[in-house]
Design a protein around this nucleic acid. Structure first.
Length: 495
RNA sequence: UCCUCCUUAGCUCAGUUGGUUAGAGCACAUGACUGUUAAUCAUGGGGUCCCCCGUUCAAGUCGGGGAGGGGGAGCCA
C-alpha cells in the first residue's frame, strides 16, 4: 500500500504538466498525504447539495468526496446523477466537513457515461432487498453489500491458491466434461451435440451415443476428485479449484447447480492428516480475509447485525460475524466419531422430548437438525464427524478395521452445515473392488481409476470444500445465491 | 420434489368488518438553498392491487386454480 501510494506520487511528479494518471480511491483514502493532484475515475453514488459527489471505483468500501465548484457548467452538473461514470482532475485536500479526512477539490469533471435517473433501478437509499438485487444481478456489483461480498470472494480465491502454493501443492486442472457417470456424487447435466427431436438410435431403440460428439455419453463434472487422485500419484500434493455441476432439483439457500469446489488430494496422508489439513486451510482462508478485507468484513458484520435486529430475540445468533470468525481462528474444531455423535444425540434433550423429526439411529445418516444440534447447541463450534457407517458413504472411502465404518470426515460449520466432505481413500485394490461390487459401481468404466491401485498404490486422503459455502461463512450472507455473481439454480439461468 | 409464507407505485411497505376517488416514506421531475454526510424545504407526475376463474349489488380484501419469490426439509459441497 505504501508502495502504491509512493508510486502514484511519483507518477504525479513525473507528469506534472501532462495528463495525470488515474489514482485508485483506495490509495487516496488509505494514504496520509494531502495537497497533491490526482485524477480519479468512478461511478457516482450520491450527489448532495449540487456540490458534493460521493464517488466509488470499487477499489474499496469507501467513497471519496469530490467537491465541485458552484460555478461548474450546468451541462455537467445536470449529468452528475446516481450511477453516472465520471473522471475528475483535482487536488486532494483536507476536508472541511466532518465525515471524512480528505476530499478532492475538483478542477475539471468529465462525464464519461450518463445514467438516466428515472430508469436506473438502483436506488440505494431505499435499501433494496437482496431478492430484488438478485433480479438485477448485472447491476448489484455496484452496491456496498455486493461490492464487499465479491471483494471478499476474490480474496478467498486468491488465498486458496496461496495456501496450497506455499505448501508445495500442484494445481491440477481436471476436466469439466467427463464420461464417467459412476461417481455417484449426484445427478449430472448431459453434454451432447445430438439433435433433441430425432437422435440416432441403436437396434434396441436406445440413443446411440457412438454417433455423439465424443463417441460416448458425456456429462458436466460433479467432482474432480477421481482425476485429482491420479495426479496425486506423482506430485504427492495436488489440488483442484474449478466449477462443478449438479443437476439435483435442490431449492435451498445452500445449493447451486453450478458451484466452485476445492479438492486437495494428498498421497501418504491418513484421515488425521486430512483433518489437520482441512482445519488449517479453513483457518488460513478466514485469517487472510480478515487481514486483507477488514473493512469489507466490518461492513458485512454491521449488515448482518442490522438483519438480526429484525428477528425475534430467540432466533438471533449469539455471536456477531467478526466474533464468530475470530472464534473459529482461535479454537480447535471438535473431532468426534459418528458413533459418539449418535450417543450424544440420543442423550440430548430434544431427543428425549422427541423434538427431532428424524430418527437418531446408528446406521442412519445425520440429518440437518442433528448436525445443527451438535454444532450450534452442544459444542458451539465447528465439528468434524469421522468414521461413518460404510453403508451411507461413497465407494472410494477406506474401510476401517472394524469392518463397519469408513475413514470419512465431514466438517460441520455453524449456520452452514456441511462445509467439507472428505476421506482417506481405499488404496487396497481387493477391498475397493469388493465395495464397488457391493454398491453396483461398474468397475470396467473406472479401470483407469483402479490402475492407481494396481501400479504403486499408496495410502492417500483428500476432501472437497464448497467454495460458495466458505464465502457464505466469511461474509455472513445467508443465501448462496448472493455470494456468486450469477447464480445457477433450478429454473434460473439469467445473465 | 415436499411443507409453509408472501406478491399493492421504480424501491420498502400500510391498507380496518368486502363499500364510494387505493395511501406513506424514499426514489424521480421542477424550483429554492448552498460545507453537505440517507442534505434540507416546496411543488408535481407516477397503480394491469401478480394472472385466470368464481362468490357478491359491490373484491386489493372472500373461495378455487396458476405463475413468480422467500423460509424450512430432502439430496449434497
Amino acid at each position: 500500500m505504501l508502495f502504491n501510494f509512493a508510486a502514484s506520487l511519483y507518477n504525479i511528479q513525473k507528469q506534472e504538466n501532462h495528463i495525470i494518471m488515474r489514482t485508485k480511491i483506495k490509495t487516496i483514502l488509505t494514504g496520509d498525504g494531502v495537497d497533491y493532484k490526482v485524477n480519479v475515475k468512478g461511478w457516482v453514488r450520491s450527489f448532495r447539495n449540487n456540490q458534493f459527489i460521493a464517488l466509488n471505483d470499487g477499489s474499496c468500501m469507501g467513497n471519496i468526496q469530490v467537491v465541485i465548484d458552484l460555478a461548474t457548467d450546468e451541462e455537467v452538473t445536470r449529468n452528475i446523477t446516481n450511477g453516472a461514470s465520471i473522471s475528475v482532475d483535482g487536488t486532494v485536500v483536507a476536508s472541511q466537513g466532518r465525515g471524512q479526512r480528505v476530499e478532492i477539490k475538483a478542477e475539471t469533471i468529465k462525464i464519461l457515461g450518463t445514467c438516466d435517473s428515472e430508469s436506473y433501478p438502483l436506488q440505494l437509499k431505499n435499501k433494496p432487498s437482496l431478492e430484488f438485487l438478485r433480479e438485477k444481478a448485472h447491476l448489484r456489483f455496484r452496491t456496498n453489500t455486493f461490492g464487499a461480498v465479491f471483494r471478499v470472494r476474490h480474496a478467498l480465491a486468491y488465498a486458496v491458491h496461496k495456501f496450497f502454493n506455499d505448501r508445495g501443492f500442484v494445481y491440477v486442472h481436471t476436466p469439466i466434461i467427463t464420461a464417467s457417470d459412476a461417481e455417484g456424487a449426484g445427478e449430472m447435466f448431459r453434454v451432447t451435440t445430438l439433435p433433441f427431436d430425432n437422435p440416432p438410435r441403436t437396434e434396441s431403440g436406445s440413443i446411440n451415443y457412438k454417433e455423439d460428439f465424443f463417441g460416448k455419453s458425456t456429462n458436466l463434472t460433479v467432482s474432480g476428485q477421481l482425476e485429482a487422485e491420479l495426479a496425486a500419484m506423482n506430485f504427492s500434493e495436488v489440488y483442484t479449484f474449478g466449477p462443478t455441476f449438479r443437476a439435483e432439483n435442490s431449492n435451498t439457500a445452500r445449493h447451486l447447480a453450478e458451484f466452485w469446489m476445492i479438492e486437495p488430494e494428498v498421497a501418504f496422508n491418513d484421515i488425521n492428516d486430512n483433518m489437520d489439513l482441512a482445519e488449517d486451510f479453513i483457518r488460513y482462508l478466514i485469517e487472510h480475509a480478515m487481514a486483507h478485507n477488514r473493512e469489507d468484513i466490518e461492513f458485512l458484520a454491521q449488515r448482518l447485525a442490522d438483519e438480526e435486529k429484525q428477528k425475534p430475540q430467540n432466533e438471533r445468533s449469539e455471536m456477531g460475524l467478526i466474533e464468530k470468525l475470530e472464534f473459529v481462528i482461535n479454537n480447535k474444531f471438535e473431532r468426534i466419531t459418528y458413533t459418539d455423535a449418535i450417543n450424544i444425540l440420543q442423550s440430548s434433550t430434544p431427543y428425549k422430548k422427541k423434538k427431532f423429526q428424524y430418527e437418531v439411529k446408528w446406521g442412519a445418516d445425520l440429518q440437518s437438525e442433528h448436525e445443527r444440534y451438535l454444532v450450534e447447541k452442544h459444542f458451539k463450534k465447528p465439528v468434524i464427524v469421522t468414521d461413518y457407517p460404510e453403508g451411507i458413504k461413497s465407494f472410494y472411502m477406506r474401510m476401517n478395521d472394524d469392518g463397519k465404518t469408513v475413514a470419512a470426515m465431514d466438517i460441520l460449520a455453524p449456520g452452514i452445515g456441511e462445509i467439507v466432505g472428505g476421506s482417506q481413500r481405499e488404496e487396497r485394490l481387493d477391498k475397493l473392488t469388493e465395495r464397488m461390487e457391493a454398491m453396483n459401481i461398474p468397475a470396467d468404466e473406472l479401470s483407469w481409476y483402479l490402475d492407481t491401485r494396481r501400479f504403486g498404490t499408496v495410502p492417500h486422503s483428500g476432501f472437497g470444500l464448497g467454495f460458495e459455502r466458505m464465502v457464505l461463512f466469511v461474509t455472513g450472507m445467508t443465501n448462496i445465491r448472493d455470494v456468486i455473481p450469477f447464480p445457477r439454480t433450478p429454473k434460473n439461468a439469467e445473465f
